[in-house]
Nucleic acid binder design. Structure first.
Lengths: 228, 228
DNA sequence: TGGGATTTGTTCGTATGTATT
DNA sequence: GAATACATACGAACAAATCCC
């Protein structure tokens, strides 16, 4: 029935989710064989997917040496946040005063989810915070904007995982609410300022202690993502 | 001697150049076979390259129907220019007042090249104008910025090729000079305004007459790009 | 240092899906 | 509307590079 179709997009999505949730930490090796096995495809497909993710900067690809989850350097980090701020400024200017009531409810609901997850593990907090920004980008209905913001958010997440200090997401939630309010009232300037300050403070927290850990079992991690 | 290494990047570069110079026009079919033959590789490599370009939005990839040079729709076009303006604003703010004398000479030299090519074919003018913006982006030394600006510039070039009216690059050259001057004098505001107006007026010209033409001989076109 | 095991780079064959007559 | 021609999707196998003991 279901014609066997290109699974490389699914694999990219799965890997992106895994990276976003920090199930795959920066530096983790991603052998083509193991990936193919996890998703039930051959190396060709896995390889293709890795190429895509490398183009997005989520995966480092060194010749004849395989793929690893990207480990953004400290200088990269500053650069990523910088460009991200510029892009999210565009997001804001597109959305200010143009959000529907339903969209605002959707955003507020997401922040409530963030509040409910307060105190949980850091990875979950980072994931939820990232998804808030993704949600905003999607509401612009601009394909390019969505793609770039998503790329940068994920890569910024990687830097947080690498260089960020733990338990740093306490204040971010209020800042999200602030942004929503400014957007709803059409205060472009205020929203922009909030967003800039918000991202700036997130970036500031991304500058400490390089956390190294052993590489865990890849297939076990991917098992839950393969069938999703 | 030279160990045969991954050529997919070279192929991407070659195709990007061909697209930039409008040797490959929007809508042109890009069969894996023909590409592989042109570059002396198998379909697998050509396929991989096409995947990369599709991720950049330069190539449309429809399942089981092959690849074609992207044909940005009218709505896409507006979106592309919009995001591009935001990104190039970031470029400006990074460069204003920080350019070395050598960099300024480099930019002015490029504009002289543009002037020298005045009256030549439209494709050449578009290519040179695009390269000016690429040059600026590269001077920021920000990998992300370079990548995004390059993607958007190329895609905007596609829209100009599709929807733009001919002989429209006359005034652009002076605008480039204006931007250089403002950058040199560190006038961030002025440079930003110039850049915005410049891109806005370029975008305005990208809204007319859909030019259709027959698909020319692919292998002949690619012959000169394959060995470069 | 060297050699075997492992992983990547590439080609090519087959199956499947799409366009055309 | 079916048969044919053609291009793509995927996988198995081989060659080359790297890693590890």
């Amino acid at each position: 029935m279901t014609p066997r179709q290109s699974r490389t997009d699914e694999i990219c999505d799965a890997l992106r989710r895994a990276i976003l949730e920090q199930a795959l930490k920066p530096g983790t090796k991603l052998p083509e064989d193991a990936l193919g096995e996890s998703f039930g495809v051959s190396r060709t497909i896995a390889r293709h997917a890795l190429g895509q993710l490398a183009a997005e900067g989520l995966v480092d690809l060194r010749r004849n040496r395989g793929a690893t989850v990207a480990r953004p350097s400290w200088e990269d980090a500053r650069d990523l946040f910088d460009v991200r701020i510029g892009l999210e400024r565009t997001v804001i200017s597109r959305l200010a005063g143009r959000l529907t009531a339903a969209q605002i409810r959707r955003l507020q609901e997401h922040v409530r989810t963030e509040e409910a997850a307060r105190g949980q593990s850091d990875p979950i907090a980072i994931r939820l915070a990232t998804e808030f920004h993704l949600l905003l980008a999607e509401m612009t209905e601009s394909p390019v904007l969505v793609r770039y913001v998503r790329e940068l958010c994920l890569r910024c997440g990687l830097t947080l995982a690498l260089h960020g200090r733990p338990h740093s997401s306490e204040c971010a939630i209020n800042e999200h609410l602030e942004i929503i309010d400014a957007l709803r009232e059409g205060k472009t300037e205020a929203a922009t300022r909030s967003m800039e300050q918000h991202l700036e403070s997130v970036a500031k927290r991304a500058l400490i202690e390089p956390s190294e850990q052993a590489v865990p079992d890849l297939t076990a991690i991917l098992a839950s993502y393969a069938r999703a």
